[in-house]
Each structure stands twice: as structure tokens, then as C-alpha cells.
Design a protein around this nucleic acid. Structure first.
Lengths: 230, 230
DNA sequence: TGCCTTTAATTGGTCAACCAATAATATTTT
DNA sequence: AAAATATTATTGGTTGACCAATTAAAGGCA
């Protein structure tokens, strides 16, 4: 889902919509304090919980800042931009499988590229260990999960926690599609070698080799997602 | 912050830690139902709200799935992987400025590359409009915000909602660093032309030109972030 | 005994009351 | 009149109680 706040709850999105309208009508000026949680809840006939959820989501995206026992203020950017941001947030719900995979491909390639530059001996050691663990579980149901760990170690070696977190966010979404679409049920023997090639490239500090190896490694998933799209 | 749930609240992280321990001790098997919210709250002497926050965060990362009036189940992956994931989530707090900028650079370059392939006439029209709006506000405090909108239009044209959302998430974090580090207070005249070059490249469907133009456009920010890192 | 119905207990979702900290107002003092 | 203090009202944070749906258990019937 990627949206930390399930929009199944219509009450929360109702609050967001209301704030959107308030901005539109000019009743809520950018940079100003927004209505108290209680007041807003009463006006919209919803529980304060939903208002707080909406505020929390907006705070996550840096649109509002809440001060304890004082109130919440909305970002001091022009109302057009604010509306766009809130609109985007409300639209975040279900991402299409292809976009998820496409993004993962991008992040994984950059992740391994940075890993080539920044991985130390300890990282490479961990990588080899993860790969060994992967091989040991190649014919077990844990294979998919071990593969995930392998990629996580690469992300760790990239020394970029933001990319690492983003991969952390989208991977579960992709995995959930695996199940429904019945992908990856039968492992390909080529996967074994692909991991090894990536390790060798990182150890040799050859980013070009590592990136192309990663692209190849994820190519099957990519083409699969492309087919699903049609 | 990027973490939707502020970890300032120690109660929530206390719950996460406890779940981590339960997995470690083997009392919580992957794929099984995890304790009821009430029970967990009582055991840890914290409000149920905090337990619910912790569960919501774990659900965001796809680690648990909550079923109304039924309970929550934890992902059916091996306990080592689960612990790693929870550990990662707990560590998500403050990203360093350089990682944020580096990631933004990556996403923006990919975003504009895809935009070259997928933008339609309407997108290009919107892009020109956004640029005009940017120029009109070049000497106003709204400049930064108009620049943000310009990039958002590009992300929209990339037809990849995941990338769009990720940029949406990290941009506020970067902007907040702007203020403290006093970056971008004086606009450079080159910015005007850089935007135009990007537009032209997209219109000409030249992804290589667009990507390099984007890299150049963000280079000042990138080198600035690099300096800060040292 | 085995299956179905009925009942009770448990669960997550929701709401309203309470708490401490803050902000605004009224009061006193200089 | 102005400033400092005391008081009241408002705020987000937290908690416990209630709700409807689900699940488990008990009871009845074949």
C-alpha cells in the first residue's frame, strides 16, 4: 500500500478533503494555525481519532507541524502547492505492480552501484554469508526471504539509509503481488550465479559490472511486471 | 523524518522492542497471530494507543496484517529476517542530509528520463505553465515552492506513482534542512535556463539530454550536501 | 457420536472523558 | 497606566469504556 494510513477509513480522508476545501476557500491560510482537533471533529461529525490520523499523515509529509498542547500549523507554502500535496496524499492508495517493480529496479541498481564504492570488507563478508544462506535454502520455501536479505545487505553496504528504507517499503508490496500472480514459484538455477556475479563485481569495485548484473538479475521480474501491465 | 510515526514517543518503540524480543525468544512464530492489543498493552503497562501505533507502523512495512475484530498476523518469513526488518524500522529516525539529497538526485534523474518517454502534450503544457509560474515568482519568497511544483509536474509525467510519492516524502525533509543550513537564500540566474533546457529535452524526447540537464540543475545542491557531510 | 444451532467471550474500531502543558484573560501590584 | 502575577480556558496527549463483528465454546438435536 505504501500509505502508512489506510484510506479505507473514509473518515480520515473526509478530514483531508475538508482541509483541502478550507484552503481552497481561503479560510485556511498557509503558515497559519489550523483548527483545533476537537473543533474540526465536531464540525465534520467524526471522532477526534480520525482528525488526529489525518494530521499525523500530513505531518509525515511535512505539510503540518503539531506542537503539544499548543496546536498545529500548516506549511507556509502557497495554497496551490498545498492543495496539490494534499491531493497527492489522498490519491496514494494502491500502486500498480509495474511502477513498484520499475522503482525497485532503479533503486537496486543505484544501491549496488553505491555499494561498489562504499562497501568495506565487513560488508562483503556479510554479503558472502547471505549468499551462502541463500544457497542453503535454495530448495526450501525460505528461498524468497533469503533473497530479500541478500538485497538488504547490499542496501546496507550502499551507506544510504534513505534508499535502504525505500526498498524496505516497496519490497513487501512486490512480494504480496508475487503470491497473487504466482510468480517465483519455481526458482531458476541462473539465480545462483547471478548473485555470485554481483558479489564478485562489488568485490572488484566494478560498478558497471555490478549494475548490469543487477539489471540482469531483476530482468525476469521486470518483464513479468511488464506483461501484467498489458 | 520520513518515519510517519514519531519515535519520540518511547511507548511505541517499547512495543516494537518487545515484539522483537518475543520473536527472539521464539514465543512469537512467524506467520502466527500476535497477541491481542489489550493483552500486549497490559503486559507492557502502556496505553493501547501505543500498541496500535506500533501495529500500524509494522503494517505499513508489510510486516503485519490486521484483520478487524479478528486479530493481527505477523509475516511468514524467517525470524532472522523479521528481526532485521523490525530493527530497521526502529532505526528509521533521522536521515542524514547527504543521503536525502543523493536519493533525490537519483529519483529526479530517473523521473525525468521516464518523463521523456511517457509525457504527452498535456504534460508538456503543464510543465511550461509551471516554469512560467516559476519565472513570475523568481524574486519572491515563493520561488522555492514554485520550483518544487515544477519538479512535481515532471514526476507526474513520468507515470510512475511510486517515484512520485517517494519524492513527495523526501522533499519536505530536504527543505527543512534548507532553512537550518541557509541554502538557496539567493537564487542563481542559471536556474532559469536550466529549467528551460529540461523542458526542451523532454519535448525533444531526448532522455540523455534531460538527465544530464537535471543532474546539472541539482549539482549545486549535491555539492552543498557533500560539503555538509564532511 | 457427530453435526448444527445458540450463546458467550474475544477482537479491532471508535468514541468520549480525563490529564498536563500551554495560551489567553483577568487581577493585582507598583 | 504599565507590568507582573494569578486565574481561567484551550490545546494536544493519553487513557479507559463502549460498539459491532468475529471467533470459540456450550448446548441441543439427529
Amino acid at each position: 500500500m505504501l500509505s502508512k494510513f489506510n484510506h479505507k477509513e473514509n473518515a480520515t480522508v473526509k478530514v483531508l478533503k475538508h482541509l483541502y476545501d478550507l484552503i481552497n476557500e481561503g479560510k485556511l491560510k498557509p503558515g497559519s494555525k489550523l483548527p483545533a482537533e476537537r473543533k474540526l471533529a465536531e464540525e465534520l461529525c467524526v471522532g477526534r481519532t480520525h482528525v488526529r490520523n489525518a494530521f499525523a499523515e500530513l505531518e509525515f509529509y511535512g505539510i503540518v507541524k503539531t506542537f503539544p498542547q499548543s496546536g498545529s500549523v500548516i506549511a507556509a507554502i502557497h495554497h496551490n502547492a498545498l492543495q496539490g500535496l494534499i491531493s497527492d496524499i489522498m490519491s496514494i492508495e494502491n500502486y500498480d505492480f509495474f511502477s513498484l517493480v520499475e522503482t525497485r529496479l532503479i533503486l537496486e541498481m543505484e544501491s549496488v552501484r553505491l555499494a561498489c564504492e562504499r562497501a568495506d570488507d565487513k560488508d562483503i563478508e556479510a554479503l558472502k554469508l547471505a549468499h551462502k544462506d541463500y544457497l542453503d535454502n535454495f530448495h526450501s520455501p525460505r528461498r524468497v526471504e533469503k533473497d530479500m536479505i541478500f538485497h538488504r545487505v547490499i542496501a546496507q553496504a550502499s551507506r544510504n539509509d534513505v534508499i535502504k528504507s525505500m526498498l524496505l517499503i516497496i519490497t513487501p508490496d512486490i512480494l504480496s503481488h508475487y503470491v497473487t500472480k504466482d510468480f517465483c514459484s519455481t526458482p531458476l538455477p541462473t539465480d545462483k550465479h547471478e548473485h555470485q556475479i554481483i558479489i564478485d563485481a562489488i568485490e572488484a569495485r566494478s560498478s558497471s559490472k555490478a549494475v548490469s548484473a543487477m539489471r540482469l538479475h531483476l530482468d525476469r521480474l521486470y518483464t513479468f511486471a511488464k506483461q501484467q501491465k498489458i
